[in-house]
Write a protein that binds this DNA or RNA. Sequence first.
DNA 1: GTTTTTATATGAATTATTTTCATACAGGAG
DNA 2: CTCCTGTATGAAAATAATTCATATAAAAAC
Lengths: 298, 298
Amino acid sequence: MATVIERIHLEIMRAVHIHGSLTAASGKLNLTQSALSHSILKLENQLGLQVWRREGRRLLPTQAGEYLLGLADRILPQFEQAEEQFEQYARGERGTLRIGIECHPCYQWLLKVAAPYLNAWPSVDLDVKQKFLFGGIGALFSYDIDLLVTPDPLFKKGLIFEPVFDYEQVLVVGPEHPLRSAAHIEPQQLSNEILITYPVDVERLDIFAHFLTPAGISPRRHKLIETTEIMLQMVTCSRGVAALPRWLVEESTKKFSVFPVRLGKSGVKKQLYLGIRETDADIDYVEAFLEQARKQRG
Amino acid sequence: MATVIERIHLEIMRAVHIHGSLTAASGKLNLTQSALSHSILKLENQLGLQVWRREGRRLLPTQAGEYLLGLADRILPQFEQAEEQFEQYARGERGTLRIGIECHPCYQWLLKVAAPYLNAWPSVDLDVKQKFLFGGIGALFSYDIDLLVTPDPLFKKGLIFEPVFDYEQVLVVGPEHPLRSAAHIEPQQLSNEILITYPVDVERLDIFAHFLTPAGISPRRHKLIETTEIMLQMVTCSRGVAALPRWLVEESTKKFSVFPVRLGKSGVKKQLYLGIRETDADIDYVEAFLEQARKQRG
DNA sequence: GTTTTTATATGAATTATTTTCATACAGGAG
DNA sequence: CTCCTGTATGAAAATAATTCATATAAAAAC
């Protein structure tokens, strides 16, 4: 078969899916309803099958339509990303490094590396993404991001992962807290505490995954807070305890009266990794980011 | 920016890359050299940058050109796969289940499952792929395959892996071989043998990865053979020993005089997994394949 | 239940785009 | 230097996409 599916068809499928009707979609695409109708009808003719089941005036995707929608979701972002990239090239900029992060400490760490990197590479933009339909690895494979910061590396063909940061996850308590100067704590000592965490799945929280859950302990209450600052504020006021990287706690002692306590006798030790696609390994500004990360490390 | 990059541009970039010149590419695309030239020139105007550096009459991709080539490699196969899929839909067929395999036992196992599945689903085609630029997981993520058979599952968001087959990797020896009726063998007993394997990386061969290498032993010689039949033939004639799944050896005793011997006291135990994309989990013929695999298992 | 509104489909006319044709121009081989 | 072979280019031709005007029908409103 010749080439029949064009970008415009995917654009139409997606726009109709999002906006609910050909008419609504036509506005967004700066075309008339008639143009879209003709375009899809032609496609249906060429394919020899329907893309929508016309039920009254609703357009319900058929199996083929669903397939096209999936194709649109995979492909259109890549066209768009490419066009943005070219706009940047044309302006003399190098491009955008799209960074994906999969945990909160990842974000904290990234903030520290980003500043010196942006100074060194004024022609490169950074874009940070946190939500991935198929996880960070999937985002890397499908070119949604160029670089992944994660605690879970994957050593597979086509990807390169490198450790960039070691840290210890510690409990943070306020100045009034009885555990304030304990050498370390055991899981059961948290069973009567209010534990404050970021609002993510419990399995993804280190204090649960590597400390409480293995011991079969739950805290008295589990409170969810979005931002680190508010979290530390609440800990300072004895409204609960939290778990954060030690370096972050130590940096915060200027602003908040908070104290780190080791989790378990040997502590909860974590590593962050940086992952890229093998094919990107020799792009200068990608390489430079890894270099910057290594420098920060040592 | 409006939508400027179209499928045809990617087709041209790829064809020129493959065939070396606009003129050569034009033949393959059933267009004239002039058409391609106009098309790319228009694109370059809209993007505001060159896609090729014109050096004499050679067209050398610029950075932007390289980017487009990468885009073409990722995107065009998806368009093509979609069109094939639609052709099948139009013929009343359900589609093609593209299966990736990452090891030789995977292939042997697949052969056993494929026959009953194809009978049960006459409207579905199977396509088996063995070579992946970015490994099986990458192929799954980038829609090169729909289903992966592998000994290395990856439990990540967006993917579903399920164990489908347990087997023991054993040594195969011929009728004259002194180890023929040994209860099991130790690594050093192979140091004077000719070991026959498939021609793949040593790290991917179970007998090396899980038996010889940990003990620091190498066989006297290492011979590479492509096909299982020839391999068994050579073993029968005392031309060497091989390592294969026990079930495969047992099935082969009718045709070849070969004998399985356990590797180490507790044997080398392996599992095969089937992996799919989460989004495909409720496609009936995909589900049916998993069901078939489970049935085979029990 | 009738009317009004709002959606898609369709044919013809128009506009825009792509493609070809003819040819200019230039690099590389001999 | 000349011939061969590649790309670029402008104008003409062919094709394709888009609009406009309108038909048709399903919801919604009354």
